[in-house]
Design a protein around this nucleic acid. Structure first.
Lengths: 247, 247
DNA sequence: TGCCTACTACAATATATATTATGGTCGCGC
DNA sequence: GCGCGACCATAATATATATTGTAGTAGGCA
């Protein structure tokens, strides 16, 4: 098995250890990888929804357009993520999805999910767990957007990205690439681009974050985490031992 | 079967038609109903998470406390809802949950969920669909909190509550009980209580919503929906025909 | 080389919402 | 019936962030 190369197996392994059979089942979700270019729109609201995408490489984001022309970015997808999980219950896309980078994606139809449900209890549980973790992530963002200052929003988001990258990339340092423009960050955080700029200036005056184009440096990770009032519990290791339970 | 009385079966029936066996499986989640009084805290952050609750009657909400003393209400639960789904992947509670009303709840352990996964593909799919719908709901709230005005936030939330009530309560009219104080509404919408009051005043000056204590009247549902830029697609009927797919 | 565009910084001003404060109403226990 | 507390309305003020405008820098391309 060339599982080394499979982001999705890395991703799932984070939740439980996988048998060969399960690995194969997962690998089958990554058939027919397709190159896809930066800026490409994977789908738009209202399109028929009958498949998921796994992201093998590159970044993507989902977003909504508002009536007044604003845009809200809902989620940023990293390699190993499954795009479109949220739409399992719907026949139409609820969000637009767009590539940030050049990347590679694999499509698999919703039906394959039912195969997983049928064939592997652990994978079913992990799918459920991934959904539940996505919700936790979203909840956290909701709290932040609703209640915290621009400064905290930025700090929180940047630290979250660091943690998420580290999850599939354990060797990541306190410097990494964040291929989002200030405008895109504004659209994630519900701020104006101008204010994102101001806030970056303020954060780097305080030595918390340095940003040079798409390169980010976080001198003191704990300080940033504190600034964003980050509560690790929704991302870190206390993911429950599912297999233990099913035994 | 006294399925008439089961909110949860009503809730699930919204997604697909159920066999007797499946109904029994669901009914088994509503064993040992417990009376529970208004204001009771079901659990708090950090508590061990190893069961879900079904809400047979009464309302509840989940919330988080912030460092500065603010509170953010994350979700409002209605009869028929399952509380704690989000925490399936975690061993600790991520949120506090509190009863708004007197009510009746039933506990069932996470393990029972695995039984469902094992015993019924359709119910597994519906569970997944419910999770996915919850996420859609959250997404919508996130967009609203991040990008819309206080007026829109209120209108959006009130209309959403109307739709959700109608789902298990098809005979609901444009008047219903909303047992939330202005302070609680503020905590849902990320506003100050004062501003909630102002906004109610403004909305009723425009004839959109009348509120007398916990009694709400919406003279023109479409107008309110429009005011909140409500996009029905995430709640209404286009839930996909899951059973059709699995065949 | 030089233009063009995307991205960024910063300043002036405008606006929505928070904060603080005060007073009013309703229901409830005594 | 009285007083107390929860809840709500409204006004005055304060503050964070948006909006608008202008200008600077870096990279892509002729």
């Amino acid at each position: 098995m060339n599982e080394e190369k499979s982001c999705i197996i890395k991703h799932f392994s984070h939740y439980c250890s996988l048998s060969e059979e399960e690995k194969n089942l997962l690998l089958s979700l990554e058939e027919s990888p397709t190159d896809i270019k930066s800026g490409t729109i994977l789908w738009e609201m209202g399109d028929a929804a009958n498949e998921f995408c796994t992201l093998k490489s590159g970044w993507a984001y989902s977003y909504r357009h508002l009536e007044n022309g604003d845009r809200q970015i809902l989620e940023v997808f990293l390699p190993g993520d499954i795009i479109g999980l949220r739409e399992f219950a719907f026949s139409e896309r609820l969000e637009n999805v767009r590539m940030i980078d050049d990347g590679v994606i694999c499509h698999f139809p919703h039906k394959r999910m039912l195969d997983i449900f049928r064939q592997s209890l652990p994978l079913t549980s992990v799918m459920f767990a991934i959904g539940s973790r996505q919700q936790a992530l979203m909840t956290e963002r909701l709290v932040t957007l609703a209640r915290r200052s621009a400064r905290q929003k930025m700090a929180h988001f940047l630290y979250e990205m660091y943690l998420r990258l580290r999850q599939t990339n354990p060797d990541i340092s306190n410097q990494f690439r964040l291929p989002l423009s200030q405008e895109q960050l504004a659209d994630v955080l519900g701020l104006s681009p101008v204010h994102v700029s101001r806030t970056f200036t303020a954060l780097s005056e305080d030595g918390l974050v340095f940003r040079d184009r798409h390169h980010l440096t976080i001198p003191d990770l704990d300080a940033l985490s504190y600034e964003g009032q980050f509560d690790d519990c929704y991302l870190t290791d206390n993911v429950r031992p599912l297999l233990g339970e099913s035994a």
